[in-house]
Amino acid sequence: MADLTIDLRNGLKLKNPVMTASGTFGYGEEYEDFFDISQLGGIIVKGTTGSRREGNPYPRMTETPKGMLNAVGLQNKGVDHFVKEIYPRIKDYATNILVNVSGSTVDEYEDVARKINELENIPGIELNISCPNVKEGGMAFGTSCPSAVAVINAVRKVYDKHIMVKLSPNVTNVAEIAHAVEGEGADSVSLINTLLGMAIDAETRKPLLSTITGGLSGPAVKPVALRMVWQVSQVVKIPVVGLGGIMNADDAIEFMLAGASAIQIGTANFIDPLVSVKVIKGIEDYCERHDVKAVRELTGAMITE
């Protein structure tokens, strides 16, 4: 059997390259009835902010061709609730639990990160500087180099474990942002967050989301995500975690060939709650078929000539 382990460095070692994406896998508990979630390489839990957020009004979701638009808007009960109520319930899962950290101000990011730093069984955070569904902060931090730099710089000072920075695809030059983020001490980057989109009902002439615009995810975004992962992996030395529209093992392997060291599965969990374990199995089979000894050999192994 191939060696599936991946070392993303600074304390983040995965038993396999498959993680579940923030906002699509709850706190893991929601999927426990279906399979043993400790099989996963990691779980990125919901976006967590400094204080409780109610998120955006309903409707927050609409299906689109081969994908969906969402405008959840970081609904969560705040970091203190996470620390007190949720962490004790999930801390003993035998997988990596990463907290997706978000905020409206640099101070808020810093505050959340400092509190998560105290939690022994959380090996890392994913800094969400790319949420398209909040009025302030979120994506605004991830769409320009100076603001991205400010967030990471502040968080790096208070957080010593693994920092994965989640990048927005809603930018002109994603590689430039990735490069800046690396310079501030990020341990890895993950991409992509959702692509800004919208949908209208022609009959009623109304927008289908309460916020008018929302974030597109699912297979519809995969070619864009793959391209961005490839571009970013050309310019950074830190590991790249790829996501966006992964539905099966072939998709996952394509992201690795484009330069990803690990991958995340998001929207696909809604359609098949068992998809992540199927992808792990599929990667294993692929390695077998292609005589790959260690899955890390696939990272950036696209053949161009």
């Binding site: 709850g26 998120g55 979701m61 929207t267």
Partner: peptide
């Protein structure tokens, strides 16, 4: 309500 996951994971159906 419109739902994506049906199991409390996505928070779309509030």
């Amino acid at each position: 309500n419109k739902m994506a996951c049906g199991i409390g994971a996505c928070l779309c159906c509030v």
